[in-house]
Write a protein that binds this DNA or RNA. Structure first.
Lengths: 324, 324
DNA sequence: CTGAAAGCGCTTACAG
DNA sequence: CTGAAAGCGCTTACAG
């Protein structure tokens, strides 16, 4: 069946002509300005509907200097932690009438930097960055033209960029203390990350072990080198995130070990994965809902004129499930 | 540290004034028009760089009538199949110089319809819809103002909308034939879906069972009602997608069954999940890379003037792993 | 209650 | 090789 090919969209001018009024009147009627009589408004709305009028956001953005759009950049769509943060940002954005446009960078620094630029060029009113892979200078440059808030850890504060993050050191300490409380002493840490959050969790692990008098048992390995830990009698493993905890889980189960009877495994992030996997994962929950809400609040604060940088740190919570 | 608060971005006019030339010359220089002398261009580029000039996409879109943006709408960020399709669309889009903006609808029909509208209002040059939840009338309406291609199955062809999908019936038949070849007769189907793709897979399963002379064993259950199947001696389960196959896997393992020795489990989609899970999932692979490329090709075809609807159907392939 | 006019930042013929 | 001018679709004072 032959389809109607897209024709030039009707504009305000078309609606005005059809309704026999001026463009400005249509514009006022469309957004419900009280200065337009009800009967006129109804007639104009009917015509707009009938001709299939839709406002051009680029025209509106150009004129108004704001788009009511909020850009969100994430490293990759594959990481459930990131996509779950996005959802919480969107919910918060919707509350204040902002729509979210999402872009991701497939874990590639250059592509991520491009996405940040693109969203800025597109005219979003603010940017939420959920990725530690965007170079600092790109963030700083972006912050010169629009409010930017970083969700998650950076190595150092980035000038002009607000942030909201969880206390990774404390999260790691929660895990260690929990395992120590259950009588474990040989507690190993598994990580493949050199990103700021990963490093902070590692630091938190090491510090907590020392505080517990277990400094001698501190041991860090890569996820694929976990066999050595098990051979050395480590019976509790804290992984830097849920994904790597699942890798450890698989490896342990492949070796015929029972979890948590033979080895306890703990993750970080409390992603859907943590609930899906068997046994379900003990993990650390960041306050995702709160993070999204705070990120949007920081953005609107900037839009409202604030010019000093704000860095919020939220407290993580331990979620105990079957794995350890 | 006090941050530079965002100031009005420099415009073409600012660059022109600083460089001491006209706006039009700057515009031409910036996009490398051969009519601008090299020395002039270099000087202008240097000034643009120095003042931090970035073009306004809304102004450009308004003027040119195209944005070089491609909108992608997905149901939800949680479904790995959908996000993996997005990646393939993006790769293909990048080839032809289009940038992707992504929106999702949290599985909510109303929200999805909003997103489709919003992307249209934003001025994207085409729309790829990776969700069967968008109402037909919304798709039709969208197709009146811009090219729309549906990736995945709809119940019936939607007027004005191109599509690319895999042959779900054939995919289901591949699974049944594979299991029959391994000697299974009591092969059940697990599905929770009333969406077109789910229904097609179910139909494919039933037809293939009949063709194999196993019509008497046809049995369909919900994922959470799989216990009945196992009790009734079904030792092979074909789930409508990888996610539900994992649910079945968990249930079987929880009952102490070994997979695939006691029960074979097969999924559909070949998502990352299929590789991650233990035992790794036998599943059906849609040609994701090809789907993204075809979707973009259909879009550019429309932009090039084609007006008849095109529906492409790709052949799925069986991927045999450990689970069945 | 309604209309004419200016202008957002760009691009693109059109003159020189 | 370069500049003045029009116009994309909107919104917003400003007059009436």
């Amino acid at each position: 069946m032959p389809a109607a090919s897209p024709r030039p969209r009707p504009t305000l001018r078309d609606v005005a002509a059809t309704a026999g009024v001026s463009k400005s009147l249509v514009s006022l009627a469309l957004r419900g300005d009280p200065g337009v009589s009800e009967s006129t408004r109804d007639r104009i709305l009917a015509v707009a509907e009938q001709v299939g009028y839709r406002p051009s956001l680029s025209a509106r953005t150009l004129k108004q200097g704001r788009s009511m759009l909020l850009g969100v950049v994430i490293s990759s769509l594959e990481n459930p932690y990131h996509t779950e943060i996005v959802a919480s940002v969107e919910d918060a954005a919707e509350q204040v009438g902002l729509s979210v446009v999402l872009a991701h960078g497939s874990r590639d620094r250059g592509r991520l930097a491009d996405r940040v630029q693109q969203l800025g060029d597109l005219g979003v009113d603010g940017l939420v960055v959920v990725s530690s892979w965007v170079p600092d200078e790109v963030l700083t440059a972006a912050a010169r033209r629009l409010p930017v808030v970083m969700v998650g850890r950076t190595a150092d504060p980035v000038a002009g960029v607000d942030s909201v993050t969880n206390d990774d050191e404390q999260g790691a300490a929660l895990v260690v203390d929990h395992l120590v409380g259950r009588g474990y002493e040989r507690i190993a840490h598994v990580t493949s990350s050199t990103r700021p959050a990963g490093l902070a969790r590692r630091r938190g692990y090491e510090d907590a072990m020392r505080r517990a008098g277990l400094g001698g048992h501190v041991r860090v390995a890569a996820p694929d080198a976990v066999d050595g830990l098990l051979d050395d009698g480590y019976r509790a493993v804290f992984a830097r995130n849920d994904v790597e905890a699942c890798d450890v889980l698989d490896r342990a189960l492949d070796r015929g070990l029972r979890v948590p009877d033979d080895v306890a495994v703990v993750g970080y992030d409390d992603t859907l994965l943590a609930r899906r996997v068997r046994p379900a994962l003990t993990t650390v929950q960041q306050q995702r809902e709160v993070m999204g809400a705070r990120a949007v609040a920081l953005l609107t604060g900037r839009l409202g004129g604030r010019s000093d940088d704000v860095h919020e740190v939220l407290e993580p919570r331990l979620v105990v499930r079957a794995s350890g």
